[in-house]
């Protein structure tokens, strides 16, 4: 997956550089990292938990976890954005599963963000987001719903099989095929990016 940092202004520190600074206990690096990914992290936590206070706590804990564990980050295992969002996602799901009475409704149709927030960098990033969004919406409903309920709803595959009334194997199959299609869409997007970069 393309690292957003690679498209950033050359004067801006890369995500990897920020993580290195984080390991050196640099608060400024933490602030920059938060400014880059705090909003998407909060949107993710809020989508999973449906409560602003709980989402805030999860994002707080997630960034603090990154602050404490920056030394354990390995770039060969994924980019910084993915690492951070994985931390936040895992924590949010963990919090959600401890509550047994609340589950958010399936994903609403994603809204377009206001045009005045479309800075050049945001616009570039939104191309990738639009690609994923379009690929997700293009999936057959059963595959899309399975992926959304798992990732944003925090359901385990066993729970999904129960609420969807299908065998476990079907749940796994829907996830596999759906993710493969999303993967291909992302790969296509990145090939286009590389081609445009070479021109």
């Amino acid at each position: 997956m393309a690292d957003h940092a690679s498209r950033r202004d050359a004067n801006q520190p890369t995500d990897d550089a920020l993580i290195g600074a984080l390991a050196g206990r640099d608060l400024t690096a933490l602030a920059v990292l938060y400014d880059r990914y705090g909003r998407v992290a909060y949107a993710l936590a809020y989508r999973i938990l449906g409560e602003p206070e709980a989402a805030e706590d999860v994002v707080h804990d997630g960034f603090l976890s990154a602050w404490r564990g920056a030394g354990s980050y390995r770039s060969e295992r994924g980019n910084v954005r993915g690492w951070l969002l994985s931390i936040v996602h895992h924590r949010a799901v963990d919090v959600l599963r401890r509550k047994t009475t609340f589950r958010p409704a399936p994903l609403e149709v994603a809204e377009q963000r206001p045009a005045d927030e479309d800075t050049a960098e945001e616009a570039t990033r939104n191309v990738e987001h639009a690609t994923v969004r379009a690929a997700l919406e293009a999936l057959p409903q059963a595959q899309r719903r399975t992926i959304e309920l798992a990732y944003f709803g925090g359901y385990t595959h066993v729970e999904l099989a129960e609420i969807m009334g299908v065998p476990l194997g079907t749940v796994k199959g829907r996830m596999r095929i759906g993710l493969q299609k999303l993967r291909r869409a992302l790969d296509r997007e990145h090939r286009v990016e590389r081609t445009e970069t070479l021109r």
Partner: peptide, 19 residues
């Protein structure tokens, strides 16, 4: 890792909220 890349792209489909 390849699957994680797809999974962590999913938050990009969400509408951003006021933090």
């Amino acid at each position: 890792r390849l699957l994680d890349e797809v999974a962590v792209a999913l938050p990009g489909t969400l509408p951003e909220r006021a933090v």
